[in-house]
Design a protein around this nucleic acid. Structure first.
Lengths: 339, 339
DNA sequence: TCCATCTTGTATAACGTTGGAAACAAGGGC
DNA sequence: GCCCTTGTTTCCAACGTTATACAAGATGGA
């Protein structure tokens, strides 16, 4: 049986509002009254009904986080960090995954959870700027991830181009010259938003190394199997890379598996650098050199941005969108060891 | 500006309830009225306020899932499946992680999200039966995971003893006799609920192979690092296993890393079987033989159990708790290849 | 002693929705 | 032409909470 303020009020012999005042630590209450009410609360085991409170207050205390795929450890770890960051602001997190499908991403931004969340953190993959431009839901939105949209929403992501350049630089410093890029988008190879590919091109150009397009391998998806398939295709096509820069760690791990099946050694024959710094990359037979984004900072910034937007109650048009860039680090491990 | 039923009603020139009826597909409405109202809804971009609806209906449409750690891919993948299963029943999922700490698990069961969720799926690690016995929150609860509590809550888990026995059987069939168990609880080595250890003992006993307690290695936690440390400790102590059955895949992966650092070959020197069937296990230099629980089924059963408990509105005492056992399969890969 | 002020508690009205009962038309049988 | 049925719409109350406005009681100064 649920017990409400009314029940407590009857038992304590005071009004409903007085009980509410006690619950909310309203200042002007005599110790006597407070004790009496508290007693009734304890006796009955009263717990506030958040739904009602939220209806009244207009906020729910719930944030939504929508990532492409929880099966990808990067997003799972990020989700954990977001939950922790949200908890610090007394928010809880509703989690959803879009499977990187445009219609699901669209659904999420249009607020199919309408009115039950106070704000949304979204990591889009396929969503187009025009999809976001027509957004009607009024819950604040914060974007995370590689893609940039010139829209009035805060965006949190590391400097992907700089990070990619650092990875390629590292491979160049090892003396490698035929550096493959694993993880171009098959459908839109020249996707301008593909910052990591741009970084690869930029760093090669800066070093005077020709960017051999035959070393750019498209992928179907972003998982290990896709990396293995892409690497196999690259090798079958006769490309002879001496290094691989993969879009993410999963692709790198899949690629290393494909290499080992063909008897290629890492890093002797092919050095490998990934992206994301998954724990998984630290425990393979060959540990993986990778770009390590500051996930904790990404989570924290996203939550803070959202919380302040909610508190401010500003509407999208009135906001000056911010581009927030947490740090990253290149973590060197066995897959690029030695010269 | 938020638009409510009232705004729509005014614009359409009908009563609030009529608009509500249209929104909820109430049968007795003339096409004319419906069209008129629909028009107003579209014009104003009305979206129902779920908080208010839920207050009125007494349900929120939100389920909570509390797992130990999202960084563990098993739980991340399971969470994804739960989200999908919940979506089929029009529920969304609030996710939390307890970090396997008793007080956080306790907090979750006591409903610190009071009244905002309709039900809870919990995977406890440290929680004791007496913690659950004094639970006061009245939201339905479903338990998943290895531990069993004799309490009036549905419990969903594969037959851990049978699964462990199958894994050990497989190793015995390969001719291995010194089979280590990696993943005993350091603090409570004889924990009776540690079903996988019991399975290890049972299968060895059934085959007349002595269960050498020096081959049982405790772990600090359940991640890769813990597996690596446990394996290192085992080897340093002079144990010479010819096979390892690990509590889970992460521990197995960590153990394999420790072996490779010592020049031990898998499966030639030591065969390895894990538990969970993580995707990660399919992409190492040596792919991992593992017990594969039917995660999809676990998620489905947990959600169905919860949804029916919510719909039934039965109180805990009145329910006959069920023990549901989804299937599992032993997936053989390279880590136990050959004889 | 009296009024002004401060403190403490209460009554009422929302927040946005839906369930149930009541009201209102329109159509059919007598 | 009247009543009854059927179908459609409206009215009212309620879910549990908090904000606002106000009343009552206590305190203090002149």
């Amino acid at each position: 049986m649920r017990v409400s303020l009314k029940d407590v009020a009857e038992r304590a012999g005071v009004s409903i509002k007085t009980v509410s005042n006690v619950v909310n630590n309203y200042p002007h209450i005599t110790p006597t009254t407070r004790a009496k009410v508290q007693r009734a609360i304890d006796d009955l085991g009263y717990r506030p009904n958040l739904t009602a409170r939220h209806l009244r207050k207009g906020r729910t205390g719930i944030l939504a986080l929508a990532v492409p795929e929880l099966g990808n450890p990067y997003f799972a770890e990020l989700a954990g960090d977001v939950i922790d960051a949200a908890a610090e602001h007394d928010y809880t997190v509703l989690l959803d995954h879009t499977q990187g499908r445009r219609e699901r991403e669209l659904l999420v931004t249009q607020g199919f959870r309408a009115r039950v969340i106070d704000g949304l953190i979204l990591n889009p993959l396929e969503l187009e700027p025009e999809d976001l431009a027509v957004r009607t839901d009024d819950a604040p939105l914060v974007l995370i991830g590689e893609r940039r949209y010139d829209l009035p929403y805060d965006h949190i992501a590391i400097d992907n181009i700089a990070a990619a350049r650092a990875a390629v630089r590292h491979l160049l410093d090892l003396g490698r010259r035929r550096i493959a890029f694993l993880g171009a988008r098959g459908d839109r190879p020249s996707q301008p938003a593909h910052l990591r590919l741009l970084g690869w091109q930029a760093e090669l150009a800066a070093s005077g190394v020709p960017a051999d397009e035959s070393l750019v391998a498209p992928v179907e998806g972003w998982d290990r199997a896709d990396g293995a398939a892409a690497m196999a295709a690259l090798l079958d096509a006769g490309a002879r890379p001496d290094a691989v820069f993969a879009y993410n760690d999963l692709i790198a791990i899949g690629a290393m598996r494909a290499m080992s099946e063909r008897g290629l050694r890492v890093p002797e024959d092919i050095a490998v650098v990934g992206f994301d710094d998954l724990t998984e990359g630290r425990y393979g037979a060959v540990t993986l050199t990778t770009v390590s984004p500051d996930k904790r900072a990404i989570a924290r910034l996203a939550v803070e941005s959202l919380v302040s937007a909610i508190a401010g109650g500003r509407r999208d048009e009135e906001r000056t969108p911010r581009e927030l860039q947490p740090g990253f680090a290149l973590v060197e491990r066995e897959s690029t060891l030695g010269a």
